[in-house]
Write a protein that binds this DNA or RNA. Sequence first.
DNA 1: GACGATTTGTTTTGCACTAGAACAATAACC
DNA 2: GGTTATTGTTCTAGTGCAAAACAAATCGTC
Lengths: 391, 391
Amino acid sequence: MRAANLGLVLRTVCAADERPSRADIAAATGTTRATAARLADDLVAAGLLDEVERTPTARRGRPATPLAPGSRFAALGLQADAALLVARVLDLRGRVVAERVEDGDFAGSEPGPTLDRLGALAARLVADLPPDLHLVGAGLALPGIVDVATGSLLRAPNLGWSDERPAERLARWLPPGLVPLLGNEADLAARTVAEAGPGRPGTHRDFLYLSGQIGVGGAAVLGGRVMTGSSGWAGEVGHVCVDPDGPACRCGSTGCLEQYAGRDALLAAAGLPRGTAPAVLAERAAAGDPAAGAALDTAAWALGIALAGALNVLDIPVVVLGGHLGELGDLLCPRVADHLARRVLSARWRRPTIASAANGPGAGATGAALRALEDVLADPAAWLGRPDVPA
Amino acid sequence: MRAANLGLVLRTVCAADERPSRADIAAATGTTRATAARLADDLVAAGLLDEVERTPTARRGRPATPLAPGSRFAALGLQADAALLVARVLDLRGRVVAERVEDGDFAGSEPGPTLDRLGALAARLVADLPPDLHLVGAGLALPGIVDVATGSLLRAPNLGWSDERPAERLARWLPPGLVPLLGNEADLAARTVAEAGPGRPGTHRDFLYLSGQIGVGGAAVLGGRVMTGSSGWAGEVGHVCVDPDGPACRCGSTGCLEQYAGRDALLAAAGLPRGTAPAVLAERAAAGDPAAGAALDTAAWALGIALAGALNVLDIPVVVLGGHLGELGDLLCPRVADHLARRVLSARWRRPTIASAANGPGAGATGAALRALEDVLADPAAWLGRPDVPA
DNA sequence: GACGATTTGTTTTGCACTAGAACAATAACC
DNA sequence: GGTTATTGTTCTAGTGCAAAACAAATCGTC
């Protein structure tokens, strides 16, 4: 019971927009001030909560001491994708404590050396961290099908990797005991939309996230929780069939969404070379280039069909576009919205909306760190009396 | 805390395959015998658990007194659909205590009179119940889009009803205080697959349920829980687009699954009149009738495309067919399975399976009762000291 | 500048519930 | 018939919360 209440208090502080006092916590959780204070004291003693400086307020009564999530607890988020390696440390308050990014072309790369480069990046980042910072966990975002339970990457088409176990390789570069948990890039990036910080609700709580990489990944978020499905690869909208007579896809099916809205497919349809930035495509379309316009129309049409099916099945009213699709959001959103209004069954009662994500590149790394920090919020009692944590 | 533990004990007894003793409960819940016994005693006193006759066993030691879910607690499940009215009473053990069924043609009927017929049916059923049986709730399954929160039926195309509030009308026929909760027929029918009885897990825990009525409804079940989505109409596979150039659907879109696998669409394609029983279609196909075979092929093709998309999005490995699709399962399943194996992204690692549901007609009514009984399992403390319950 | 008002945080007391252990009951085994 | 094994009950101690009283710190007012 105490374990449950400790979690409740910690999550209340994390979820709050302003720094709450002990009395605020009591009011929010429905317990008495006495109970809330005792729980909060324990969390402060463990470093999971900090008593921060009180801001001058013109209110009568004894001034409150505001509480904030502990700044000495943090997690490491890693991401490897076709063009980017990211290592990022996020603390319990959701602040980026440290970050290192490396550009490159890792499509078709050897998994081992690439993971070593990411590991070295992470090792340098961790070495420079303040000594009193405690890393409670790590996560790794990968653009592919991941078996979360066994920690193996089954297939990452963009990287050209299959049947890898990257966690062990990375763990060699990290402090002992810190083994990164694998996660699908789209699932983890979706977290950055669902959560503004650890335990703090983001702009949307129910949405379908589309991650525009070379292909199209996706994740469904319901009630603020990323739907994992029964084996953890739910939300894969990229391979929903848009036209059974369409072009063959490398997944074995035909006419998949990816063949119309994937980055390479979009660029090819617009007559642009493979590596072109999405912004160039947007410029061309805005300037009236007919090929670019047609490519975007086709992508919007395909997105409309695939997303309508997904929204019908999931009963979700909101779509958030990330990656290259997010960059093209201004052009895509209005067109897709028209298709959705026509094809979504519940559109009559509640019009579906579609918007771009505000998360930048490397959102998967942030999401991986959020995922690791979630363990602390779920059961703070486990972190209470630990001697290895700096008190 | 006690409320939580009471629920835990009750759910443990319901979930068990054999009738557990107090000691079994202690072992299953992880509490001590003393605690489990005290909680069980309270539940027995309230009638939520029954001490049943012990079966002779050749085991040493003091014989155990087996506990079973209370047989005096039950719920009323109702269902109205285009050809059937059902009223059914299910007790906490999952047994059908009483049942009344009325055939008819209610497609395009006036909502009021039809609801009155169902109400009268329910009233006769309730009147004949044993006097010590306590009805804890009621549910109504309707084939359409339902707003569970406000209790209104937005649209039921098969019945031709719109914007109805059937609960009030039915409540007039029922004992005071018993207001049926609305639910989508497919959602509730899916429950009968997910749960073998109240709180007892069924054959599958993660599956997509397809309810073949005049149209095609659906429900997604994850971890034994029916996914409601953000407004309660998740799982609507019937209006996933199979072919953007296909026939127009009354939902406003084109080429919906329903236009290929709905009952009327199937019969029309096979050259059979509208009211024909699905069994006749199966016979014809088995006898080598080319039109019937082609109709089934088309339906299987459409199901393959729509279901593959849904399975990709939901990451569910199992499809269960109910209604007329279930009756045609022997013919449909093998054909659909082929399509799924080719189009589902994760099929390489885990082959999707598809099977017919074993639930008979009126599964929605059973599901509605299960739904109502779930309230008791969720918080038995609320039913503990109630004077209106026969002790 | 003293006093009351007001809000926060702490201490004290009582209560509800569980854990643990000892004890009583019952039936098979030797 | 005694022993052993298993179930159910009783008793005591301990944990953690609620409620209420109390101490602390600031603002407003005379």
